[in-house]
């Protein structure tokens, strides 16, 4: 049975790493409106990460605050799923990642908001509204791109294809999220149907994030994110 610390650190790391990825788009998105929306989603996720990591630090009781957890752990101690650390790629790949993740996160946060642990459920309750918007935003783009031009459709298919191997990890029974799968499958199928896209075929899952065994991408992401804290340890920013 996962402890409250385990839960909080996983949720915090998912939000932090995806927030970090989305912030890479700032100033470079395909349209100004998309730039603003991706920043919004990134800001929500960084806010959630701050709350979850603070809680994890308190639970752990070793004096680590949210910043210590975010900026001074290495790859093996990060507990985010592999999906969120995948590079942005083109806009379709970013949207595929967001679509798969936010639909899962919305179901999960809804469950957490109703869970007995009051500290966790308070964060979950606030996050549910934010995440519902993220899921809707990503789903709308899946439909636009799937039902847009030939090029956008091909890119959307490729984006989903590259992200699909990381889906099973979200429902690993060890994390207690397996029960969310049917509802998630139904949501994904609905949107893909509206986009006239096929649900990708099942494939061999790539997992390991929840145990600290990540893709090669995470180390580079952390190198950048943690640079100042590592280069100038022990000062206030």
């Amino acid at each position: 049975m996962a402890s409250l610390f385990d839960h909080a650190i996983r949720l915090g790391d998912d939000a932090l790493i995806l927030g970090q990825r989305l912030s890479e788009w700032a100033g470079h998105a395909p349209m100004l409106e998309i730039d603003l929306a991706l920043s919004n989603i990134g800001l929500d996720l960084i806010g959630q990460a701050t709350h979850f990591l603070k809680l994890a630090g308190e639970e752990e009781g070793k004096g680590r605050d949210a910043d210590a957890l975010a900026f001074r752990r290495d790859v093996l101690d990060f507990r985010n799923c592999l999906l969120v650390e995948q590079p942005n790629g083109d806009f379709a790949q970013t949207i595929a990642r967001q679509f798969l993740f936010s639909n899962w996160q919305e179901l999960l946060m809804t469950e957490i908001a109703a869970a007995p642990a009051p500290a966790l459920s308070a964060i979950g309750a606030k996050a549910v509204k934010e995440v519902a918007y993220h899921a809707r935003y990503a789903s709308e783009w899946v439909v636009r791109l799937g039902d847009g031009t030939e090029e956008s459709r091909a890119r959307m298919v490729a984006g989903l294809d590259s992200m699909w191997r990381f889906v099973d990890e979200l429902f690993d029974p060890a994390d207690g999220a397996a029960s969310l799968r049917p509802a998630w499958d139904a949501r994904i199928a609905d949107t893909l149907h509206a986009a006239s896209l096929d649900v990708p075929k099942p494939r061999r899952a790539v997992t390991g994030g929840r145990r600290g065994h990540h893709s090669e991408h995470l180390g580079h992401l952390l190198t950048e994110m943690q640079f100042l804290q590592r280069a100038y340890p022990g000062v206030t920013w």
Binding site: P30, L145, E151
Partner: peptide
Amino acid sequence: WVREAALAH
């Protein structure tokens, strides 16, 4: 291509 897709859709 994103803007074209949004228009086409």
